[in-house]
Write a protein that binds this DNA or RNA. Structure first.
Lengths: 216, 216
DNA sequence: TACAAAAGTGACCACCTGGTCATCACTACT
DNA sequence: AGTAGTGATGACCAGGTGGTCACTTTTGTA
């Protein structure tokens, strides 16, 4: 048998989780190419051959690992979108922002990998994963903005795509500032407690509201 | 002599430029660690030893190369800031945005290196260069915002740091969308002609104005 | 032309990488 | 006890890396 994932699936839960955790750590620290299979197996205390039997090759390991994480990311989006469909648009934006913060707080390593992937064109599977992620979040935002325009909570004269882009920019940077110290730019967002983050998120959506809101 | 930059400085202009151009290309394509000295010298048609005599080591080459680029980036900021100090704040923001677009159009490879550096913590000299860049742009934005608050073009009740952060977010993402296809998100900014970009930039500052402007 | 200084060279080095595979250890079921 | 199947192992491989240095070639000058 050359390289089925069957073997890995049969492993005891505890070991499976340890393998994934250690590999995630390595990719988060070093990105894809600089990540070292040797270091991973050394830290795990298993033989190199085992890892290759589990996943076939380095890319297989990464695909398995990050694919699971993306699936986990997509779940909470739907929940927020489907629930609270009657609440204020800008409040929903604020909720989405905080949901994002919750995700990167729960999965900081996965988020670090995602950030590294953003601008590294030769990151394997980059196009597949990035388009999957951005398609999900764009679809999510588009529906919210559409509803808000129909219900008159947002100016009707604006360019829809630019509005989505604008919202995306602000949300992305907010999350990045929470996770990367050098990008927090004096806002005190990095590693802040929940209360502080909630305040800043509110300030930000206030900027958004009076820029996009009907009553201006 | 082990490793003075003297040798490189003495080279004829044409050769010096070719070396820097080829090295910039390599770093832009592959990032720092994946960039290969062997490929650079192969493309240049010179011996590996020469490059090490010029710059000492890989890091020396990168430092020389990117340091020059950063210096070039900082110049136009001052010009815009000092001139037009009487024109409307949001128009100046629009001008700054377009100046950014001009820079990444003139130096697309340098911008690609910068983007790769953003989230790659183990990029050599990352902290030095990033803090230098962000300090310059924050100082620039802070002065503009300060003046605009004093002259009453911006609401006085807003959090200064969050406002700067907000402006930074929007401008950063705008530039990224111009340069990276996967980040343009349906706006059609990537590789667009000047006219299109000017229109989108205007739409964006319009969002900013009615969010931050006095007359809201 | 002679000679010294500067610039250019590329074989060579130690090191690390992803990946392979023959072999071993353990279990389960006849 | 015999045997088939599963998982674990780590020495080994080819290839690429940044970096070195003894050597040759070119250049400027007296």
């Amino acid at each position: 048998m050359t390289s089925t994932k069957k073997t890995f699936e049969n492993l005891p839960d505890e070991k499976r989780e340890r393998v994934l955790a250690e590999a995630t750590q390595e990719f988060a620290e070093h990105g894809y190419h600089q990540a070292s299979i040797n270091r991973i197996v050394d830290r795990l205390g298993i033989a190199k051959g085992s890892l290759f039997k589990y996943f076939g090759n380095k890319q297989g390991l990464f695909e398995y690992l990050f694919g699971h994480a993306v699936a986990q990311f997509k779940k909470p989006l739907k929940v927020i979108r489907d629930a609270n469909s009657d609440t204020d648009f800008f409040e929903r934006m604020e909720m989405s922002l905080l949901a994002g913060v919750d995700f990167i707080t729960a999965h900081p390593l996965v988020y670090r990998i995602y950030l590294k992937m953003l601008f590294q064109e030769n990151f394997p599977l980059r196009d597949k994963f990035l388009s999957e992620i951005r398609q999900a979040s764009a679809k999510y935002l588009r529906q919210l903005v559409n509803e808000a325009m129909k219900s008159g909570q947002i100016r009707a004269d604006i360019d829809l795509e630019m509005a989505i882009f604008h919202l995306n920019s602000v949300m992305d940077h907010f999350l990045q500032a929470c996770a990367v110290p050098s990008l927090d730019g004096g806002t005190g967002l990095f590693d802040a407690d929940r209360k502080t983050i909630e305040n800043k998120a509110h300030a930000l959506t206030d900027f958004l509201r009076h820029g996009l809101g009907t009553i201006s």
